[in-house]
Design a protein around this nucleic acid. Structure first.
Length: 104
DNA sequence: AGCGTGACGAACT
DNA sequence: TAGTTCGCCACGC
């Protein structure tokens, strides 16, 4: 049974447009919490992947971060590339340009 | 209620 | 610049 917090996180994920990425920090800010770790925990337990684009979430340093789904990080990178997000040497290329910013 | 863990972030050394 | 420390809080035990 998903908690209200997790549903909120997944809903935020679903707002990310194809070919873009966002960060855990942005999601946390959007949800009104300072605990990005809680967001990471919730995203990691996403049972709807890849229906919910959890692979479009990366750390604020522009790297890929982690992925609990099938194939791990490599799979995450493959999914991003298919959407037009370039990934080189474990990090997102032109990260700031591809960064999706939530509206308040 | 307390403790450890976690797909992180920012500050500090 | 890299590595460490602390903070954050949801969740399971």
């Amino acid at each position: 049974m998903p908690t209200a917090f997790q549903k909120a996180v997944w809903e935020a994920l679903s707002k990310i447009p194809r070919g873009k990425v966002t960060t855990y920090g942005h999601i946390a800010r959007y949800l009104g919490t300072k605990a990005v770790r809680a967001v990471g925990t919730a995203v990691g337990k996403n049972p709807y992947a890849p229906e919910v684009p959890c692979h479009r979430v990366v750390p604020s340093n522009g790297k890929i971060g982690n992925y609990s789904g099938e194939g791990g990080v490599e799979r995450k990178i493959a999914l991003l590339k298919e959407e037009g997000v370039e990934v080189k040497e474990g990090k997102v290329v032109r990260f700031e340009e591809l960064l999706f910013r939530y509206e308040k």
